[in-house]
Design a protein around this nucleic acid. Sequence first.
RNA 1: GCUGGCGUAGCUCAGUUGGCAGAGCAGCUGAUUUGUAAUCAGUCGGUCGUAGGUUCGAAUCCUAUCGCCAGCUCCA
Length: 645
Amino acid sequence: MQHKIESTESNTIIITYSDHQTGTCKAGLTAQQAIAQYDAKLAKRMVAARVAGQVVDVHTPLTENAQVIPVMPNEADGLEILRHSCAHLMAQAISQLFPGTRLAIGPVIDNGFYYDVDCGEQVIKEEDLPRIEKCMRKLVAKQIPIERQLISRRQALDLFRGKDEHYKVEIIDQIEDDAPLVLYQQGEFIDLCRGPHVPHTGHLRAFKLQRLSGAYWRGDSDKVMLQRVYGTAWADKGALQDYLDKLEQAKVRDHRGLAKKMDLFHLQGEAPGMVFWHPNGWKLYQLILQYMRRCIVDSGYEEVNTPQLVDVSLWKRSGHIDKFSENMFFVDQTNENRRYAIKPMNCPCHVQLFNQKLRSHRDLPLRLAEFGSCHRYEPSGTLHGLLRVRNFVQDDGHIFCTEEQIQQEVSDFLDLLQRIYKNFGFQKIIYRLSTRPEERIGLEESWDKAELALQTVLDNKGIAWELCEGEGAFYGPKIEFSLQDCLDRIWQCGTIQVDFCMAKRFDAYYIAKDGSKCPPVILHRAVLGTFERFIGILIEETAGLLPFWLAPVQVAVLTVSEKHHSYAEKLQEDLKKLDIRVKLDLRDHKIGYKIREHSVLRVPYLLIVGQKEVDTMQVSVRTQAGDHLGIMSIEGFLAHVKSCL
RNA sequence: GCUGGCGUAGCUCAGUUGGCAGAGCAGCUGAUUUGUAAUCAGUCGGUCGUAGGUUCGAAUCCUAUCGCCAGCUCCA
C-alpha cells in the first residue's frame, strides 16, 4: 500500500542535508530518494530518516521543505529501529515454525528486544532458538520489503479477528485515539505497530536470540502466561560480538561466583534465602556494620534493639496483618496458645519505644536506629543470592518528627546517604519517587503532603529522579535509592519513607508547644538498605576487589621456603599490632602457587619473603592486580597503604 | 507463586541408544626447599538433590517433591 501524497502548491521542495547543504527535489519523492540524490551509498545503508526532526520510514514521501537526515544503524535511533524490526523478524520466524502462534507485544529493551507469543500447546524450547535464528537468517537473505500501511480501526479489528489474533484485538480496543492505525507487512507477516521500521529485512544482519522465559499478558499475574523470547541486535557482527563478550565479562563479577572463590558465604536448600556467613564474609559484614554505626551516631541517631518475635496483636494494630501478612513468617507456640510473628520490619517496635515516655516537641526529632534481623517470606522464584533474601538486617532507622521538620530531615538524610555511597565508591545512584499504592492506609491529604515533601527535597537538591506511580509502601510514599548489579539489573538499596499513619495506629503522640497532643510523623529510612543486598552489589561493583579498608584479609605474608618462616612469623605479629588483617602462608608450596591462591582470594597485598628480604629486614610487595611495588621496609609498605586510602 | 531450564566427588564439569559412576583441581601421603598466578608421584573421596514408578537392569525414561538459574509477578 502506498502513502497518500498530498498535493503541494509548488512541485519542487527544498531539502536541507545534515551538513546544511541544500538541494531541491520533486514533492512526493521519498526521504531515501532525496538522500540518494546527495549520497547513494548512505541512502542504501540508512534504516530510517529524520525529516524535520521526526524519525520516519525511509519511504516516507516528502511534501514540504524540510531538513532530511539519514538515520544510520549505528546511532541510538537507528539501533532502536533495527531492534524493533528484529523483534518483528523473530515473530515472523516463530509464526512460520510454530503455526497457530498468536502475537502479543514485541518491544525494544536495553541492548535488544523481546516478543511475547502464545503458541498454544506448543512449547518453545532452548534448543529451538538456533532453529528460529536460522529461519530469521533465511528471511534476511530474501531482503523482504517491510511496508507500512494505514488502516481504519474497523479494518484492523476485522483483520486481526479474522486471524484470531485476540491479543492484537485487545490492544486495538484499548487505543483511544480515532486516528488510523499503522500496520507493517513483510511477506505474509503483518503486525500492528507504530514503527518506523527498516526498509527491508536485509538490514538485520547481527542478532542473537538469548533466552526464553514466561511473562504474564499485560504484566498481570492473574492473566495467562505467554512465552517471551529475548534477543539482542546490533548494527554489525563486530558490535554484536563485543556485546556478547561484555556479557561474559560481566558474569565474572557475579557475587555468587565470587563469594565462592573468596569464601564469603553460602546458601543451602534447608534455609532458602538465608545466608550462612563464612569468616571472611562475616568480617566484611561487620566492618560495614561498624562503619555504619559510626555514621549514624555522628548523625544524631541512638541505636536500639527490639525483639524478633512479637505477638500478632501488635501487627494487627500496625496494619501489617492486613496488608503484609503474605510476606510474614509466623510462629505458633501451641503450649501457650499464642501466635507470634517474626518481625518483617522494625518500625512497630520503635513506636513502642517512643511510647515508653511522655514526649515533648523539644524531644523531636528523635532518631532511633536498629540493626535488627528481619524475616520476610519472599516468593521462592524471586530469591537471588544476596540480592533477594528472606532474612536480612537493614541499617534501619526511624525519625520521629513534626511535619515542619520533614524537609530538613529528608534533606539531611540525602546528604548522609550520598556521602556514604561515595565512600563505598558508588558513582551512579538511581533516584525514584514511589507514590501511593492501591493497597494503603491513611488519609488522602496526608499522602498529598508526604509526596510533595519528598519531591520538594529532591528538586531542591537538583537531583534527577524518576516517578514510580503506585509503588509506595502501604503506609507512605518513599524515595528509593537504587544501584545496579553486574548485568545492569536495578536493585533498591536505600530508602526514606514518610509515614503519617503508624503513630496514630499506636496512639503515639508528643506534646506540642500549645500543650496539645500531636502524632509525630515517622520517617522510615535506611542508607544501605539491607547489608545482604548492599554487600552483594558491592562485590559486583568492585568485582571482588574490595577497597583496602573492607578486605577481610588485607595482607598475606608468603614465604619462599622454610628458611624464612621465623622472619615471616615476626612480620605477621608486627602487622597485627598495627591492626592490619594479615594471613600467614607457611605451606610447602612454590611461591607462584601461593601467589595464585591469594590472588584468587582477592587479598589486596601479598608480601613475599625470601632470603633477600630476610637479609635486609624488608618485604617484597605485590598487589592483587599483579603490580610489583618492589622491595621496601614495613614502614615503607604502611606509608604506601596509607597513601592509597 | 508462575513459565522454561538445571541438579553427578569439597569445587569446575564429562558421562553416547538404559548395560560395572569418570576427569581436572582441592584434600591426604610422600618426594621436593622452591623467587612473583598452578612442582612431581601416589592415594582418598559419590545412595548421581529426595521419594516413588517403568524395566532383567535407571545418573540416563516417567511422576511427585525440594533447591538452584533466567525471566515474569512481587520486593530492600
